[in-house]
C-alpha cells in the first residue's frame, strides 16, 4: 500500500461516528510496541468496531486494511470470519481476496488457516482452485510447508487426486533433492484412493527411486524414500535384489557413496548376506590408512563412514559398537 495515497480514517465521512480505541499496553510494557501512524490509526478503529461487534460491510473493508498492514494479527482474521458469516458474503470472492495477499505472505499461518476455512465452506467446488492455488505458491517456493499442508488437506477433504503423482514427478524433475516432493509422493502412494496402496505400487516405485538415486547418489531424500517403500517389511528390504544392486552400483562408482554405505550398513544390521562383489566394492573404498581388512564387512563399512563423514563420527562409532562381535 502506498501510504501517500491513503486517506486517514479520521478524514473519511463513513467513519465519523466511530471513536478510535487505542491499544492498552499496561503501565510500563515489558516488550513495548512501537506503532507507525497509519497502522495505529487503522488498529484504533478496528478495536472500536471489534469492541462494538459491528459486523458490517465497512468493518469488513477495515479488516482488509488491517490485514494489508499486518496479516499476522489473528484477532483481525477472527473478526473477519464472523463478518463473512453474518453478511453471507460470496466466498469465491473471499478466495480471490486471499489470492491477492497470499504471494507476499506465503508463510503466514493465519492466511492459510483462513483459506482452509473458506475452502471447507465451499466444499468440493473449491478443490480444483485450491490445487491450482497451491501449485502457484509451490512454483515460488517448492518447499513451502503451509502450501503442502493445505494441499494434503484439500486432497483428503475435497478430492482431486487424479494428477497428483504426475505433479510429484514434475517437481522431482525440476529438483530431485526436493524432500517435500518426495514426501508428497509417499503421501500419494500410501493414501491415494486411486492407486491401490504401497504394496501394489512398490515395484514401480522402487525402479523410479533407483533411477533417481543413480543420477544423484548424494541425495538423502531418495535413499530415505527407498527405505520407506519397505516400511514394516524388513524381509523384503533385505532380500530385494534392486536394493543391494543400487548399493553395489553406487559403491563401485566410488563417488558420493555415504548413503549407499549407510544403507548397506542398515541391511547388514538386519541380517542381509552380502555377495563377494559387494565385499570387493567396499574393500576398494579403503585407504592405506584404514586398519587391515576386517572379516566382518559391517566393521569395515563403519570405519570408512567414520573417515568420510567426520561430523557424525560419534554416530558411526555407536553403530559399530552395536554390531554383534
Amino acid at each position: 500500500m502506498d501510504s501517500d495515497d491513503r486517506i486517514p480514517l479520521s478524514e473519511r465521512p463513513e467513519w465519523s461516528d466511530v471513536t478510535p480505541l487505542p491499544q492498552d499496553d499496561g503501565p510500563n510494557p515489558i516488550v513495548a510496541i512501537a506503532y507507525k501512524e497509519d497502522f495505529a490509526e487503522v488498529m484504533n478503529y478496528f478495536r472500536a468496531v471489534y469492541r462494538a461487534d459491528e459486523r458490517s460491510p465497512r468493518s469488513l473493508d477495515l479488516t482488509a486494511e488491517a490485514i494489508a498492514i499486518n496479516p499476522g494479527n489473528y484477532t483481525v482474521w477472527h473478526f473477519r470470519r464472523l463478518i463473512l458469516e453474518a453478511l453471507n458474503v460470496n466466498l469465491h470472492d473471499e478466495l480471490n481476496f486471499l489470492d491477492d495477499i497470499a504471494e507476499s505472505n506465503t508463510k503466514n499461518y493465519q492466511i492459510w488457516h483462513h483459506r482452509r476455512w473458506v475452502a471447507q465452506k465451499l466444499g468440493t467446488d473449491a478443490s480444483r482452485k485450491e490445487i491450482e492455488f497451491t501449485k502457484n505458491i509451490l512454483s515460488l517456493d517448492s518447499k513451502n510447508y503451509h502450501a503442502w499442508s493445505h494441499r494434503q488437506w484439500v486432497l483428503q477433504a475435497l478430492g482431486g487426486w487424479e494428477d497428483e503423482l504426475d505433479y510429484c514427478h514434475e517437481l522431482l524433475e525440476e529438483d530431485v533433492f526436493n524432500n517435500s516432493a518426495w514426501n508428497q509422493r509417499y503421501f500419494v502412494i500410501t493414501r491415494s484412493p486411486l492407486l491401490g496402496g504401497l504394496k501394489a505400487r512398490r515395484e514401480s516405485e522402487v525402479s523410479y527411486t533407483v533411477e533417481a538415486i543413480l543420477a544423484h547418489p548424494e541425495n538423502e531424500s531418495s535413499w530415505r524414500y527407498l527405505r520407506g517403500l519397505y516400511s514394516g517389511d524388513t524381509h523384503s528390504w533385505i532380500t530385494a535384489p534392486q536394493v543391494s544392486s543400487v548399493c553395489l552400483k553406487v559403491l563401485s562408482g566410488k563417488r558420493n557413496f555415504v548413503f549407499a554405505l549407510s544403507t548397506l550398513m542398515n541391511l547388514l544390521c538386519h541380517g542381509f548376506q552380502p555377495s563377494q562383489e559387494l565385499r570387493d566394492a567396499v574393500d576398494a573404498l579403503r585407504t592405506p590408512d584404514d586398519s587391515p581388512t576386517d572379516p566382518d564387512l559391517a566393521n569395515t563399512v563403519c570405519l570408512i563412514l567414520e573417515r568420510v563423514d567426520p561430523i557424525r563420527v560419534n554416530y558411526w562409532l555407536w553403530k559399530k559398537s552395536k554390531l554383534p562381535q
Partner: peptide
C-alpha cells in the same frame, strides 16, 4: 532494549504475539 524501541517496524508486527 527491545522494550525501549519506539519506531521499529519489527515491534509493530510483533504486537499480537508479545
Amino acid at each position: 532494549s527491545v522494550e525501549k524501541r519506539k519506531d521499529d517496524f519489527q515491534s509493530v508486527v510483533m504486537e499480537h504475539l508479545r
